[in-house]
Design a protein around this nucleic acid. Structure first.
Lengths: 326, 326
DNA sequence: AAAGAAGGTCACTAGGTCAT
DNA sequence: ATGACCTAGTGACCTTCTTT
């Protein structure tokens, strides 16, 4: 009797009805997630998703942790569809909050490859980082990359790609997204230079034979640009999404490119709408200013590649984690 | 036309508006029940539920008899939600008063099975026991079990279970709850040994070949533990509720277990809050001391099973009521 | 046409409000 | 204190859309 569908992993009460917003769950949790995104009537509760009680905040946290994602479909440029944009932003903001929480508090015991992460269609399972856990440069780089990957994996378009395209997309974008996020954090903390959450430098101490100006460029240039623009959190989230749909990454198939550009259009028109609503006539200029940040991200990425190669030749390789090798 | 809703069984005056706190009744009686739980402004009236008009006490009694139940939903550990806990306790205390009244004064003419009781979604209909009704051991055991079942059936979670799970839950818990209640009564009467309300022994007189220490263990061990702890009525009520949500009873489905553990969390956090408020720093210890009583209840249950089997082999079976057979 | 997922609808009930 | 009425969250069920 009652073979039925498996039990919904979010409410642990009802049977799943299929994939809803990217996650296998029940109809009730689907509607709950949707309503919450559109109405945003959530009071934050300190225990993150733990009071299985009738706590709306924790139920929503469980949705976010399970990877539920809302993606706008209707043309967000229609002013009437503004609530689609705002639901999308609400969704992204909570995903980003989770990423930040995991970066500061969590840990992952293992050394996965990008390919392994791309294969898994469940979110990465982090564990609480023990108090007094010794974080060094390599650990920070690792957890930064891993939390970024976990954030990126949830996007709708990732699940639509075939295994190979998904692998390439994550491989060629997670590093850029990480440094962009790092720069945004520096900006929020009113710091000129990128650091890790504990304040430590992102470049290893002893680097012989490299110009200080080059190293300071890595530390500061992108953060300075973000700061000059006074980039909002919403702009950051949308811009990351647009960047993450770059159809130009190497190795991606024709059909993959099509999917990526479809989504890139969605996200960039969402960004444009945000700019128009927020800056009125100055909206289009703002939009292009934001897109121009891509160049700075790519420049920083190149500098970091050079630095990494240089260090490794000198025998100073910082991390041997597979994330950054293959 | 004018089919309308049936008349409210509590006030016999208005039309029902649907299920409120588990009972089909009108809006006015719903609000009356809620207000009374939270304000507790009730003067007890000697005629139990009989003067329907204008008597608040009797109206509330009718609510209780009809099986209305309030279950805390907000996190009772929030100090601001203390009134939820107190409303819940007020509710339980009155349900328990009713059970006690029925045990002492009522009777049930029939021999129902657990399955039949589980199917009925109305409370069990007891009748007044005639003066001078001859109570023997078997009658006491029967009415004890039946009033316990009537008490338990009203809990919110029972109505959420499917028919099969409900049957198993009642089947495997009503006996334990009964002996726990019996022990509490002994304690209130300052007696070391469990007896029925008329003072008669719970073990049949002629039991050949069993050690006195074994029999006295059954009579006294649980009551002694309750007495040692100086368990309050509130602790007893909450602890019973926690026990009654044991997801480990045999035969219960996965979804049933989930429902039970959800409610067990609610009740146990209510108990914890009670302990914290009442005993301050000693609260957590008190909480675990109380939970440890489960072991004693289970031990007593086992001893009684053995006794029952033993007696039945000797041809001394005390009761042939179906409650205790199938 | 069949299946899977997004989105819409509505009956239901806990809890709040306010004139009496 | 009461009860008629209101509000909001919920989830079962339905429709629509897309893809194969």
């Amino acid at each position: 009797m009652s073979a039925g569908a498996p039990t919904c992993s979010i409410c642990n009460a009802r049977e799943t009805t299929g994939f809803n917003y990217g996650v296998l769950c029940c109809d009730a949790c689907k509607m709950f997630f949707r309503r919450t995104l559109f109405v945003k009537n959530i009071n934050s509760c300190h225990r993150l998703g733990e009071c299985i009680r009738k706590c709306r905040s924790c139920r929503f946290q469980k949705c976010i942790q399970a990877g539920m994602v809302f993606t706008p479909t209707k043309n967000t440029l229609e002013p009437t569809n503004n609530d689609q944009l705002s639901a999308f932003l609400f969704n992204l903001a909570h995903q980003e909050e989770l990423r930040k929480y995991q970066l500061v508090n969590c840990w992952y015991d293992g050394d996965p490859t990008i390919a392994e992460i791309a294969e898994q269609n469940a979110p990465i399972k982090f564990t609480k980082r023990p108090d007094g856990f010794p974080m060094n440069l390599g650990e920070w780089i690792f957890i930064t990359g891993l939390t970024s990957l976990n954030y990126l994996k949830k996007f709708n378009h990732v699940n639509m790609l075939n295994a190979s395209d998904r692998h390439f997309l994550l491989k060629y974008s997670f590093y850029e997204i990480s440094i962009f996020t790092d720069s945004m954090r520096a900006c929020e903390r009113k710091e000129e230079s990128i650091t890790f959450p504990d304040g430590s430098d992102i470049i290893s101490e002893a680097v012989p034979g490299l110009e200080m100006s080059f190293l300071n460029g890595i530390r500061c240039r992108l953060a300075a640009r973000v700061n000059d623009l006074k980039m909002t959190k919403e702009e950051f989230l949308l811009l990351s999404a647009v960047f993450f749909c770059n159809p130009g990454f190497p190795g991606i198939s024709k059909s993959g490119c099509d999917i990526l550009s479809t989504y890139q259009k969605i996200y960039s028109s969402a960004l444009l709408q945000y700019c128009l609503v927020t800056y009125q006539k100055a909206g289009p200029t703002r939009f292009t200013d934001l897109l121009a940040v891509f160049q700075v991200i790519i420049k920083m990425r190149q500098d970091l590649s050079y630095l990494s190669t240089f260090l490794s030749i000198c025998g100073f390789a910082v991390t041997k984690k597979k994330l950054y090798n293959c």
